[in-house]
Design a protein around this nucleic acid. Structure first.
Lengths: 202, 202
DNA sequence: CACGTTATGGCACGCGGTGCCACAACGGAA
DNA sequence: TTCCGTTGTGGCACCGCGTGCCATAACGTG
């Protein structure tokens, strides 16, 4: 019947892509940082990456998404970090470790991460989009908290929002004091904002 | 010269507005809730309010702004609440009171407030805009915290983000349990998320 | 009536984002 | 080789949001 499946061998067939999401993101990020987010149109980004405007929107559903190309990897690290916590570990420690692990970057990516963070707090459109992306983080944190306090949904929600608030506070401070270590800042803000262990009462 | 100032008497002159921001907001909010945010165009909102599309954008800089018509009043209540705290009051109590005071609504506005909260967590465009509006809240909270701990800017930032996180968590819970009292929820989430009083160490 | 003032509404434009479709570039089978 | 299915590409038209520009309407005052 119409042989829908390709034989085997690499699972390829059809026209090969002229580029990749990673390549386009790398070019676009550089251009966006150089010329400004709102001052750069998608047409310019596409031209810089050597693709058409229409193809750009196949790689990224939104102009802002090009700044979050590695977001899925971060989310996956966060998820793995939450799952890696042993039963003996305090949940606050588990969450803190997971956040720090998820947001860790290679030294050569530090400047890029800093620039991106600065975009969050200066360009409204980027910040707006970041909130939508980080909803996944929040949900993961909420699910994790629910496993600790399945009796108190408000507590779980608060934990989820606390994770985001701590992450944002650390990044905001970082943009003003770039010499600081983001990991240290995250550890401190999480310690400040994560609710304390539930008292043994009730 | 050219008599720039009108004589006196009510400070009026020129063509009178055909409507007001409050009237337009009331109509638009109803339509948006009935037909959905993304499914309603600005042309439809303008037509429903009896004004032109161009005039709509003079009343509100953005389609989403029509949902935040009373935001300035809330911000002002928040600011006043923060300033009203006596020196004997704990800063956590002051902040909690200020938030609850700012977000208090008349009983007849309860349903509208609930619907608006539901829009925050379902329509990405609204949530994105809310973040930008609430940056003012955060800044006020940060400034207030700085008066308590002027030595620790990271602490101040964390407080600011905690206020927003608690507000969001309370609203999110409220949208799922509309029978709950928003004030109670706010008090609980703020108690969970506001950092504890700085220990007397150092 | 002429004038300044203020609000309105129409028009054109740019930009982000989407649906549709023709076509290009690959592998495989006849 | 030719035909075919598959997959990526790019062009085009379209819609909605938001803005700048400008003509004009509606007021008060001289």
């Amino acid at each position: 019947m119409t042989a829908p499946r390709r034989t085997a061998a690499g699972d390829r067939g059809g026209r090969p892509p002229v580029s990749s999401a990673h390549e386009v993101a790398a070019v676009a990020q550089r251009v966006l940082l150089e010329r400004g987010f709102d001052e750069t149109s998608v047409d310019e980004l596409a031209a810089a990456a050597g693709i058409s405007r229409r193809t750009f929107f196949r790689y990224f559903p939104t102009k802002a998404d090009v700044l979050f190309a590695d977001s899925p990897a971060e989310v996956e690290r966060f998820r793995a970090g939450l799952a890696a916590g042993g039963p003996a570990d305090s949940w606050r420690v588990v969450v803190t470790r997971a956040v720090m692990e998820a947001l860790r970057f290679a030294p050569e990516d530090r400047e890029w991460a800093l620039h991106r963070a600065q975009l969050f707090f200066t360009v409204p459109a980027v910040q707006a989009h970041a909130v939508r992306v980080w909803a996944t983080w929040r949900q993961l944190a909420v699910d994790h908290a629910r496993r600790v306090r399945h009796d108190d949904p408000l507590f779980s929600l608060a934990v989820g929002h606390a994770v985001l608030a701590a992450t944002l506070a650390a990044h905001e401070y970082w943009t003003r004091e770039p010499a600081a270590d983001l990991g240290d800042l995250l550890a401190r803000t999480l310690d400040l904002l994560l609710p304390p262990d539930p008292p043994s009462q009730r």
